[in-house]
């Protein structure tokens, strides 16, 4: 399989603080790749750089072979991004929100309507976002991110602040999108999500990518001595030990 995302020696600094330190990885087409790490480990910074929101201090990021810094508009056509806390204008309806983001991606009216049908809004399509519950806003976010033209989905901590029903819906969404052949990158600090959904995982600690392995490999290599959670904690501890 071809690499659809290539991150090469990416570093991001804010003044003297290094948020992400010289990381490299690739994500293959159709793969589900999870960024796993504690808060402040560089997951969101990396994700925002992949979609062109953050400008790398050094290194380069290629989306389908296109450098996101040099040709951002072209590269972003391949990516659909869902921020950590997605908010929509409260005085627009769900249909207007979907239509707007559909127009940004030059989708036909039929394709936009299909997104609404797939999102199963039923009677809510013409209701204002201000009348939506948290779960409905999340469903709207997932509908926006699942626009049919983008082969890559980037989801930043998509299950943070969700109730169990929302988490279940998100898992179903990921499996559905995977079946459609989409490449999915999501960040989380929840291990069960990684175990259940990801093909591969990159472990972020202190702005460094300390490991990247297939989830199955991680599981196998650690089953004898503990759980995947133990492995993750051992990475964090060994990094913290090195730092001291």
């Amino acid at each position: 399989m071809n690499s659809i995302i290539q991150v090469e020696r990416f570093t991001k600094r804010y003044g003297s603080f290094t948020a992400v330190d010289n990381i490299s990885f690739e994500v293959k087409q159709g793969e589900v790749f999870a960024f796993l790490g504690p808060n402040g480990s560089g997951k969101t910074t990396t994700m925002k750089a992949i979609v062109g929101l953050n400008i790398p201090t050094s290194g380069r990021i290629l989306i389908n072979g296109i450098n996101i810094v040099d040709r951002p508009k072209e590269a972003k056509r391949f990516v659909s991004y869902l921020p950590q806390r997605v908010v929509f204008p409260e005085n627009l309806t769900a249909r207007e929100v979907i239509r707007f983001y559909g127009s940004m991606r030059k989708l036909s009216k039929e394709a936009v309507e299909q997104v609404l049908v797939n999102a199963r809004f039923n009677g809510f399509s013409d209701k204002l976002v201000s009348e939506f519950s948290g779960g409905m806003v999340q469903r709207l976010g997932l509908a926006v991110v699942s626009m049919p033209d983008a082969p890559i989905l980037l989801l930043d901590e998509p299950t943070a602040n969700l109730d169990p029903q929302g988490v279940k819906r998100f898992r179903e969404f990921i499996l559905e999108q995977k079946q459609k052949g989409k490449t999915i990158v999501f960040s989380t600090h929840l291990l069960p999500e990684v175990e259940q959904l990801a093909d591969r995982v990159g472990i972020f600690v202190g702005g460094k990518l300390v490991a990247q392995q297939p989830v199955e490999h991680l599981r196998r290599s650690f089953l004898e001595t503990g759980t995947i959670e133990d492995l993750y904690l051992s990475y964090v501890e060994s990094y913290q030990h090195e730092e001291r």
Partner: peptide, 15 residues
């Protein structure tokens, strides 16, 4: 505007 909606807008294939 709100950070979430700003990020969502700028992440679209627009300059």
């Amino acid at each position: 505007g709100d950070k979430g909606s700003t990020e969502l807008l700028f992440s679209q294939p627009v300059s």
